[in-house]
């Protein structure tokens, strides 16, 4: 009621007017500086002595149009690999993180193995894991060897599972011991406490860094092309070799950015939401 009928004092009216003027001024300043910087950049690039040559070999619309189908079909492989590998790596990371929290002497070998795994695969370059799995393992000539694409995906899952395990573990360890005390004092077992009290809070807390690693994975899935399968970058490379023109690379780069935008937007949104929740607003 008071809120509806409140008439601002002259002091408040003056403050409101001042703030409004300030807002208009900031918008104008921002627009001017952006326009100035943009103009300068465009002039610097297009005015460069070699601009015409660069435009021909990197930004040729006709070549981009010709390369598009091949690059897109490569990108479809990236997308499928990303979905499978992200799911696999998240699951593996969560399991490894949980194994590392187990207490008690029985679980020592499990803990040691899990710790050894995260140390090894976070240290090992992805390319080497890929080579070992896609070139070395098929060399064993075992029965029922999965195709190279699956082995390459496995290399990605193993490498990213190591990173994600540490993110999950950081989340689990960030939950205050008083939460565990409260859960255990209600008679919940260790497993129930993890499942219903610790993990739900931990996963929410580390969602932004988890998604960040998924964005990084999106770019790395293309490395399976080292073993044969043709992803977007490899398709662009082939097109480039046919035309002696680099436009297909730029095309693939633009497509990758477009693909990443939704994922990055989700990451930002989740980060913002958890920040708001923490501040209680």
């Amino acid at each position: 009621m008071n809120v509806l009928h409140h008439i601002p004092s002259t002091a408040q009216q003056r403050r409101t007017a001042y703030r409004r003027r300030q807002t208009v001024r900031s918008v104008l300043v921002a627009a001017t500086s952006t326009a100035a910087l943009g103009t300068l950049l465009v002039l610097a690039v297009t005015g460069a002595p070699g601009w015409d040559r660069v435009r021909e070999s990197f930004l040729d619309p006709a070549i981009a149009r010709d390369a598009l189908p091949a690059v897109l079909s490569g990108l479809w492989l990236n997308v499928r690999l990303l979905v499978c590998c992200a799911a696999g790596a998240l699951l593996l990371g969560l399991v490894i993180a949980l194994l590392r929290t187990l207490r008690g002497p029985v679980f020592f070998p499990v803990r040691a193995l899990a710790a050894g795994y995260t140390y090894t695969f976070r240290g090992l370059p992805l390319i080497i894991v890929l080579y070992v799995l896609t070139l070395g393992v098929p060399g064993l000539r075992l029965q029922g060897m999965p195709p190279v694409l699956v082995l390459g995906g496995l290399a990605l899952v193993l490498t990213y599972g190591g990173y994600l395990a540490e993110v999950f573990r950081a989340g689990i360890e960030s939950i205050h011991p008083s939460q565990l005390a409260a859960a255990r004092s209600l008679g919940l077992t260790y497993r129930q406490t993890m499942r219903h009290v610790v993990l739900p809070q931990a996963v929410r807390r580390v969602a932004p860094p988890l998604l960040n690693d998924v964005v990084a994975l999106q770019k790395d899935v293309g490395l399976v092309s080292l073993a044969g399968p043709i992803d977007a970058v490899r398709a662009a490379q082939i097109a480039t070799a046919e035309t002696f023109n680099y436009t297909p690379y730029i095309l693939a780069g633009v497509l990758f950015v477009l693909l990443a935008i939704p994922l990055i937007a989700v990451t930002d949104w989740v980060t913002l939401r958890s920040a708001r929740r923490r501040s209680g607003g």
Partner: peptide
């Protein structure tokens, strides 16, 4: 046994 803590320790989620 029921236990109540100084800092409540409710589950925030």
């Amino acid at each position: 046994i029921g236990m109540v803590f100084q800092s409540y320790n409710l589950f925030p989620h």
